[in-house]
Design a protein around this nucleic acid. Structure first.
Length: 757
DNA sequence: CTCTCAAAAGTCAAT
DNA sequence: CTTTTGAGAG
């Protein structure tokens, strides 16, 4: 079914399998794409060929990815191929696509277009409140338990009423959960809000309940392409099914292309069902399958390690990645005494890679849990290496940001009582829990929103001070509502901050952290202004939608010139010249919680596999012998997965402090890691660094320390040394030194624990 | 209603 | 270890 000439530019440089995946035409195509096999290229070329051959209008194409970053990249590459002809194409994430559909269709089922989106944090706040109200703790309900169960049910497309029918009504615990679930659903509805899982599930319900609405989208989208198909959950799977169904007036279903790799399925905890891809051929009879195994990203050594590791998973379709670029450098292994020691290795190694000409933004560090960032950051902050942490405690989850966003949400969606409650007393204006309860019950009795109840505060018999505060808040919100209609988001936020004195209040406290909070709020203001600039037509709702749907990986600014730190999950879909995977220890990878879950061990192995296959040229694997958890130091054992990599692929680096006769954590063969492991009290005495104390104490400031080449200095860890050169300016001055004991280091003068001798 | 301090908890990844 | 929470005083 070739529609392209063999010499078509859209096919040049593609291998036969890739070319087939671009050209095949039929109702269903599954592209099994191993890591680094050029799937984005195949997808974009496929889209381009559809448009170029006039097989489809751009507006008939829907391409779905998991992150905004992936969507942006796909759009950019499609634009390179097609130019302006990409206009009208939907290239976006599952969540963004669904929001777009829901905003158009919300009025069909009891919502308005200005609905707000609750992130997991908002959901938990609401669930917590409901559990308390229902006194449901006594039935063993916890916030995380309920949140997880509701999320699972929604991902399985089970709504409250069908759940109610499925349970044993005599089970008091289940009944208690049901009433919490009911109340949660009711509250979301009356707040005109959807939670994350609703965005997908409600779109499916919408399509099922209103076939004529579904038909509109079935007719519109004639070619649907889904990336990372192995990570779809049941609701997403159902959404795709709904969209590719035949319409009621007999138009055949859209053509569906899915791309995925079951070896990279790492989101089972979020409901991802590996069967969606494994059973694709059964779900879509006549589906054509193309396998992409040639890897264009990594060296053979890296691929051999990846193949060896993933080969230990059972029940997988065997595929072997290969490359023709050659073996490349060996994988570098390192065992540190502690997480800080490990971090120091990472930083030193990065400095040396950088000295060899590798840019910082081509380097990334991965870890299993966000808590591992602390030790890394503590070492990074004192080195001259620029870094950035992706994800983790997210900006939008900070209390001060939630407060300020509460104003924007209340203005955009006055039904959202969760947001209104949040701002009643932020900043402190004397409206406490008692007043809040009174306002809420007044609102409930009169069938109005909490926001509207503020207008009737005078009749509630509250004290003059409280009534005055409420009147003032009401006036402020009214003014905001007027501004929001006409103005920019940045102007609105500026007005809110001025009128509430929120930033001023933060600045006037003694708490040093409040200064940082004030800066965060100002950063948010900058974000709104940036949004206004990039979206001249953008509304407040558009802004709120955008911030609700940002993901960790979306924050990556490739031109930032920094080393990127992120979890292994966030790393999926990205690639770097040099990759460091840290904390490759039992209890961490596989994580102790995951190891107990069914299928957990295999999924953790896939996670490791994903990490390994992100590396183009250099791969570093490191671990520590002791790792602190909640301030408690525990013994750590090398991960079982480490032993799955053939020993000849790894070159173990000596600990620079001189590890004497301590063996590397694993040898080529024979005795397992455990027996080769020394007891901690047998470790050679090492200079006590007491990182924790020094690092968490007040930040050192050597800002005015003058250093020139030739100066002798003393460093708390590295001992005495000589300054070779000083580069940079002001607070960013960097001393290039050679230490007598530890060799060459680059230190940020401002914060390094050094003194002149 | 607000502030302060001490106890308790979090302990896995995230759209 | 850090952050959140609850109780009790002001």
């Amino acid at each position: 079914m070739t529609m392209l000439m063999p010499n078509d530019p859209l096919l040049t440089g593609l291998n036969p399998q890739q070319a087939e995946a671009v050209q095949y035409r039929g109702p269903a195509l599954l592209i099994v794409a191993g890591a680094g096999s050029g799937k984005t290229r195949v997808l974009t070329h496929r889209i381009a060929s559809l448009v170029r051959n006039s097989e489809a209008w751009p507006s008939q194409i829907l391409a779905i990815t998991f992150t905004n970053k992936a969507a942006a990249e796909m759009r950019e590459r499609a634009e390179t191929l097609l130019g302006a002809a990409t206009e009208g194409m939907w290239i976006s994430t599952f969540h963004s696509s669904c929001v777009r559909i829901l905003r158009r269709e919300a009025e069909n089922f009891g919502f308005t277009k200005s609905f707000t989106i609750y992130d997991s944090h908002d959901s938990r706040t609401l669930i917590k409140r409901i559990i308390k109200e229902f006194d449901a703790e006594s039935f063993g309900l916890t916030v995380s338990g309920v949140a997880g169960k509701i999320s699972r049910l929604k991902n399985e497309l089970t709504d409250v009423e069908s759940y109610a029918r499925s349970i044993n009504a005599d089970d008091r615990n289940e009944a208690a959960f049901l009433s919490v679930f009911r109340e949660y659903t009711r509250t979301l509805q009356s707040a005109n809000a959807f939670d994350f899982d609703d965005l997908i599930a409600q779109t499916v319900f919408l399509f099922r309940a209103f076939p004529h609405v579904a038909d509109v989208y079935r007719k519109k989208f004639r070619h649907i392409l889904v990336d990372e198909y192995q990570d779809t959950n049941h609701a997403q799977y159902a959404l795709i099914h709904e969209l590719t169904r035949e319409t009621h007036d007999g138009l055949p279903g859209a053509s569906l292309t899915v791309v995925g790799d079951s070896d990279q399925s790492i989101y089972a905890f979020r409901g991802a069902d590996i069967r969606n891809i494994a059973e694709f051929e059964r779900d879509f009879p006549g589906a054509h399958v193309v396998m992409l195994e040639q890897n264009y990203r990594s060296t053979q050594n890296i691929l051999s390690a990846a193949n060896a590791v993933i080969g230990n998973n059972f029940n997988r379709q065997d595929k072997k990645l290969w490359t023709d670029v050659g073996d490349g450098a060996k994988i570098v292994g390192f065992t540190g005494y502690s997480a800080h020691d490990e971090a120091q290795f990472v930083v030193d190694e990065i400095s040396s890679l950088h000295a060899q000409g590798l840019a910082y933004n081509d380097i990334a560090i991965f870890y299993r849990t966000n808590s591992q960032t602390r030790a890394l950051e503590e070492i990074f902050i004192r080195s001259a290496v620029p870094y950035r942490i992706l994800g983790g405690t997210k900006f939008y989850e900070r209390a001060e940001i939630k407060d300020v966003m509460g104003y924007l949400v209340t203005v955009a969606n006055p039904n959202d009582s969760l947001a209104t409650r949040r701002i009643l007393n932020a900043p402190k204006r004397g409206i406490g829990p008692a007043t809040e309860a009174q306002l809420q019950s007044f609102a409930d009795q009169n069938g109005i929103t909490l926001r509207e109840s503020l207008k009737f505060a005078d009749g509630l018999g509250l004290g003059p001070k409280v009534s005055g505060a409420i009147r003032e808040l009401d006036a402020l919100l009214s003014e905001c509502e007027a501004t929001a209609v006409a103005g920019k988001v940045g102007d609105l936020l500026t007005m809110i901050l001025e009128r509430t004195g929120y930033v001023v209040a933060l600045r006037s406290t003694r708490d040093a952290q409040d200064e940082a909070r004030a800066e965060n709020v100002e950063e948010l203001l900058a974000v709104t202004k940036e949004f206004d600039k990039n979206n001249p037509e953008g509304t407040l709702i558009d802004f709120l939608t955008e911030v609700s749907l940002v993901a960790a990986a979306d924050e990556i600014d490739d031109s930032s010139g920094s080393v990127s730190l992120m979890t292994l999950h966030t790393a999926k879909g990205l690639e770097y010249d040099a990759v460091f995977i840290t904390g490759i220890e039992e209890e961490l990878l596989p994580h102790r919680m995951a190891a107990m879950e069914p299928g957990g061990e295999a999924e953790e192995r896939r996670l490791f596999y994903v990490g390994i296959t992100r590396a183009r040229k250099h791969l570093h694997l490191s671990l520590a012998m002791q790792r602190a958890l909640f301030g408690q130091s525990n013994l750590a054992m090398p991960s079982r997965y480490l032993q799955e990599i053939p020993a000849e692929l790894i070159e173990w680096r000596e600990n620079q402090l001189g590890l004497g006769g301590v063996p590397r954590p694993l040898g080529a063969s024979g005795s397992g890691a455990t027996s080769r492991w020394r007891e901690p009290d047998a470790l050679p005495e090492r200079p006590k660094t007491e990182w924790a104390n020094r690092v968490t104490n007040k930040m050192r400031d050597n800002g005015d320390l003058e250093l020139v080449a030739g100066d002798r200095i003393h460093h708390a860890d590295f001992g005495d040394g000589t300054v070779n050169q000083v580069t940079g300016e002001g607070a960013k001055r960097v001393a290039h030194c050679t230490f007598d004991r530890s060799g060459a280091k680059k230190l940020l003068i401002k914060v390094a624990p050094i003194e002149k001798i």
